[in-house]
Design a protein around this nucleic acid. Structure first.
Lengths: 340, 340
DNA sequence: TTGTAAGCGTTATCAG
DNA sequence: CTGATAACGCTTACAA
């Protein structure tokens, strides 16, 4: 049974720093110093305090620490939606760069506390976080005070005063193009939706194909709505209706790519024998053995790490000019692309 | 551009209740009363305070509120891993039952603040949350003090003092069985792993099949490791090697079911023409048009709502006997099951 | 209805 | 090194 309650002090209120001080026979300040790992405490006293902390199961109140201290040592991470898995890797990267400095991470998506806060940012502001990371491009209007250190990770909205760390979509598109050209494809279709990321990826694709010479060309089906699986199905349908000769499809993201797979299957086309398909984001579904989708890895861990570093730099020097950092994506070849 | 900084007070420290009081020409307590929506405040003063709050962009410090108040009005939700998507629906349910009461939700998985806290529970304890919800069955040793209101949602670990709200796995297994029997299947395979949920689901399946009479039977392949996609592939392989006559496969969860789909495809078996497949959990992948996996919906939203209600009850009456609530799962029929 | 004052559990600033 | 003592921003009796 992994979960157990310890019997001691059950029911009573949590121990305070006073309790610890009394038990260890020292002053409250001494306890505080021990807590902050100050070297200016005798080993004997320190040991006594530590023992008292153990015995009382003492845990400093974050509220009191935040209130009394000068810094909250907390960073708020704003997600648009917990369903968008990519944030998981982003958090890994953020943790790597932020946690050595003792920063605590708090996450919220736009639904978590609806009804209490107008937006996740409101909640973070109340917590007096030292910095905010916005993951992706939330569609709500986020009012972040100009004085709050802010970095946008993975999104392409450029806010003058915010640092931006994102995957280089244009390069990603070019990488996809190069992969397909390598495999011998010359007539390539793009399926996308109305988003900045989709546009950039297409631009990268087209540029690289154009550079390959007159033998290769791109045709596109860009829908006006959200880049959903359904949109992928529809877009690939449109694409093939108009251009039955495409042998490879590059989708603006994995979700649309999965839709494209459905669309192709429903038309009786085999992947990758008849048509190759490549997605973008390298999501868990793409990596699934069942799907095995070739995709462009947007390097979320790297983005997270970079975002954390930028945020620290900005906290240290709020006046520093905003930077935009692009992380190089990379190809992850799987089963849905093949030589033609 | 959705994100904007408001110019006012940029750089300065956040306004306090004193600033608001001064600006509105009232005392700090009056401001506090307005904040708490007390009816015992004249409309005039209230308006003045509200205006000052607006003008100063004032936001109460959660730290100060928590420290001064008697309750933190915060509930901690412990997830094992942000990658296990089912928590998203759970949160929806929790929100529904908890937020009317003004409770704030804080979430953490076991990685979020590793290096700072020994476990997510540690962090929540420091925050002085009023209750904790454990989602699923975390593998870390969570030391939750006996005095902390606790409910386990979706897990099957039964802790004497904790309430439990979970999906009724046995009934779920029976529902899967009934569905397959309805479709005319008589020789049914089960693929699972070593977990309490898997066992319960199989038990439910077997009971229902047995009740159908001697014409129907179940054969199982239960692996010893984690219920992963790979495990699904292997398990369905073992199953078919030993029992080539099965016409339907019930997997302990969707992930294994997806693995089973791969395994079947690799053996040249078509789904659902040759073999029907049914999973459990009704995850987003199952719902994907590309996969279209028939599954058992574990009703996570309901579980969340129930967990929230139990937690409130327990907070109100800590001495109440622990209850175990089972939520009825339901079938979601898609493309992977068919009449034989 | 409104104001006063005493905490809440820490950190921080100084004298010893 | 150690220990008072004053903040920190807010809630909450208790008075007025």
């Amino acid at each position: 049974m992994p979960i157990m309650g310890d019997g001691k002090r059950a029911g009573s209120k949590p121990a305070t720093i006073y309790d610890v001080a009394a038990r260890a026979g020292v002053s409250k300040s001494l306890v505080s110093l021990v807590l902050q790992r100050s070297p200016r405490v005798s080993d004997q006293r320190r040991a006594a305090v530590l023992r008292a902390i153990q015995e009382l199961d003492y845990r400093p109140s974050t509220a009191a620490v935040a209130l009394a201290g000068t810094r909250s040592r907390t960073i708020g991470v704003v997600l648009d939606d917990f369903r968008n898995q990519w944030f998981v890797d982003l958090l890994t990267g953020l943790r790597e760069s932020l946690q050595d400095q003792g920063h605590r991470l708090v996450v919220a998506d736009r639904f978590l506390n609806t009804g209490l806060d107008a937006s996740p940012v409101e909640g973070f502001l109340s917590m007096r976080v030292e910095g905010i990371v916005i993951a992706g491009e939330p569609d709500t209007d986020l009012a972040v005070p100009a004085s709050m250190p802010l970095v946008v990770a993975g999104g392409r909205v450029t806010i003058p005063r915010a640092d931006t760390v994102a995957n280089d979509d244009r390069t990603g598109g070019a990488i996809a193009a190069a992969h397909l050209l390598d495999l011998g494809h010359r007539r390539i279709g793009f399926v996308g939706a109305r988003s900045a990321a989709s546009d950039e990826r297409r631009t990268g694709l087209e540029a690289r194909i154009a550079a390959a010479g007159p033998g290769a060309s791109v045709v596109s089906a860009v829908l006006s709505g959200e880049p959903t699986e359904e949109a992928g199905v529809r877009a690939v349908g449109v694409l093939l209706d108009e251009h039955p000769d495409v042998t490879a499809v590059f989708a603006a993201n994995d979700v649309m790519a999965i839709g494209a797979l459905s669309g192709l299957a429903e038309r009786g086309l085999r992947v990758p024998e008849d048509v190759s398909v490549i997605g973008y984001d390298d999501t868990p579904v793409a990596a699934s053995r069942y799907v095995g989708l070739t995709s462009i890895d947007d390097r979320s861990v790297e983005i997270g790490r970079g975002a954390g570093e930028r945020l620290l730099a900005r906290i240290a020097d709020p006046g520093a000019p905003a930077r935009e950092i692009l992380v190089e994506p990379r190809l992850v070849a799987r089963r849905t692309t093949a030589r033609r």
